[in-house]
Design a protein around this nucleic acid. Sequence first.
RNA 1: GCCCGGGUGGCGGAAUUGGUUUACGCGUACGACUCAAAAUCGUAUGAGAGCAAUCUCGUGUGGGUUCGAGUCCCACCCCGGGCACCA
Length: 819
Amino acid sequence: MENYNPQKIEPKWQKYWEESGFYRAEDFSKKKKQYILIEFPYPSGDGLHVGHTRPYAALDAISRKKRMEGFNVLYPIGWDAFGLPTENYAIKKRIHPQIATEKNIANFKKQIKNLGLSFDWSREINTTDPKYYKWTQWIFLKLFEKGLAYQAEIPVNWCPSCKIGLANEEVVNGKCERCGAEVGEKTLKQWMIKITAYADRLIDDLKKVDYPEKVKIQQINWIGRSEGVLIKFQVKDLKSKTDEEIEVFTTRPDTLFGCTYLVVAPEHPIIEKLKPQIKNYRFIEDYIEKSKRKSERERISEIKEKSGAEIKGIKAVNPVNNREIPIFAADYVLSSYGTGAIMAVPCHDQRDFDFAKKYNLPMIEVIKPYEEELPKEAPIVVSNGSFRKAYEGEGVLISSGRFDGLDSKIAKERITEFLAKRNLGRKTICYKLRDWIFSRQHYWGEPIPIIHCEKCGKVPVPEKDLPVELPYIEKYQPTGTGESPLATISEWVNVKCPQCAGPAKRETDTMPNWAGSNWYFMRYTDPKNDKSLADKNKLKYWLPVDWYNGGFEHTTLHLLYSRFIYKFLFDIDIALQPEPYKRRTSHGIVLAEDGRKMSKSFGNVINPDDIIKEYGADTLRLYEMFMGPFDQAISWSTQGVKGVFRFLEKVWKLFSDCQNNKKSSKSAIKEINKLNKKIDNDLEATKFNTIVAAFMEFINFALENKPEIGRDTLKKTLILLSPFAPHITEELWHQMGHEESIHKQSWPKYDKKLLKEKIITLVIQVNGKVRDKVEVDANISEEEAKKLTLEREKVKRWIEGKRIKKVIFVPGKLINIVI
RNA sequence: GCCCGGGUGGCGGAAUUGGUUUACGCGUACGACUCAAAAUCGUAUGAGAGCAAUCUCGUGUGGGUUCGAGUCCCACCCCGGGCACCA
């Protein structure tokens, strides 16, 4: 037999699989369906790297095994191709984004095909295809129709030099990533999607799905539902009460007596309204200007040196005790959360505490910690009259007038009632989640299908006119006016109003990249449909997705967005279930050999093509499963790749040495049975690394006991290995004389009876430390074990002259003598 | 700053979820084969002490619970992901 030569066998089988088309999923098959999904790639100009291929190979193994178990598997792929990276790439390389996209896709496709993955290529989709984005636009029209898409004035990062809006990512230390100019803020009219209307359902329905706990927690925290109270503070100027009031949101109304000042966001309208009464308006204005130059992240990060400015000339009145307290403007308070104003309780909120200390503001302790929380370290230590730290927990009220002595929980209710009676407060729910900014002033995206008519307002493009095709233009660079480049094409912009036929203009903003990826998994069920986004029966057959794998970095954006859109489609009777994905797993990123992120600029990118050329696709696939825990970030190691290649050579050798053996020994049958179980269990748990390790152990065992490895064991070995290393197993399978593909074989079931061990190693401990081991019958009783143990020489040495206090016996495992 | 993870040999990691720490792989050393090298095969490989049997220590740091802690609890340190216009 020849040596193992992946370069020779892999292309042969890839061709065979593609021609026979047996990875095509069958609509409405009688077999049980299984929809397995990877996040479709963004075809960037950098090409595919080994970070992409890890999850593809892993989920491919799962798909292949499920097929062998008799499932009708859908394992599709497509291209998420609109968006900034391609636009920037196009500008830099002077290639039209459409051409660049086509080239990039062709490149990715070629690279992916070298891996021998079992994707159903007949269902390939592309978000930049007008036949596809017709339905992306259609979903937008439905959102608009239901009042969930609206326009609002929203501040964006603005580079005054490039004259474009910037993503936070493009702002580095307050400067534009491209030109280095100081980034400012500019208000633009933006399309928004009301995801907040679904906030509660997005939390509640997490109960219905199988996601990693940390993904659920991240989403819940991101949505950030908190129940609290809105409290009104009257505003006074120096002489009298004004009509103005400041409303704050708080989750701690029980601490209201400890409120010693208010803080409003610099954008808060009160500042503009009471301009004449504000004595230091100039100063405040200056402060507002300064904070506008900071990004939101900077504003909340600088917590230690929180900056702020007292608004002089006006005061707020604490509604429970009528005390006059100062009002500050400070940029650690965000206008986008709550009411954009807070009541500050320095003793019971660390941020307020830091701020109060800096500006020498009074602190009043109003919550006494419960007794049991005191002993360790009294949270608020009064030493020479100053406090060390805020106490944020609950307790008993003090210095709170008629509410003294109440428990925080009860006080929350009572104080809220007190305020409600006087119309100064009411319960409410706030979310951290914000509505979703849905427009981009860029070329490379789906045009938003709206027409602005002077008479009729915002008019949706009639469904029959979809898709609104993105015109092919030469000038796709940003315009410098803040508008999308589409605004410069007058023949495209100027249209007749679909309602009144009067002169009207098209919306020129495009959609963000998320628009196309929100619903792509639905399109795979019926990718060529031009009557609807997908046939209802096909959606019914295939959805929900049984297993969706993707990166953790998508947890709070793509994953949440697509759940929301699916819920919306469920409400309008397009989707048939409230949740799109039954199960979610996540993979970690692959770092470069030097532990840094793979990046062209570091020159440390590993291209799968090179690995395949040298070691073959099977080695690459197996290595990426073996390299470490699937859900953790991990560094690439070319040495490690070699180890896996050696393993496959051993498989090849085992086969050539044992192919004429007849019968397998009992222990060989037992070992492969154990391996079978290990694969079944660990694959469900995405523990790919231990599966590969178990294979290695088995092959090591087999090579040490070659005469015991019969044809039946070889056959089973190949079948078990085939989802992970599809090429080598197919080759050896055919060399055994089989005609049909190994991937059409059925998955073996392990024998539970064979798993039982008759003899076990009993661990003997003295005071919890291992002192001896002994081989015993697996069913040994406690009495027998104790007798045996006490007779052991080593044990005798340890317990000599000591009194045995206790003996702990764990059946089948260990015995511990406590002296 | 906030939210979520992680920290085990020289390195990537394993540990049936409270019960033999370091499986599997890499690397290294020695040996076999070879004129030689590579490849391959074999042996060893946490640290310290000892001729040895063996003993002590050891899962980021400090404390706690337990017969027994990598695993549970408290405090701290370090690293990674996310923070809304990258995808």
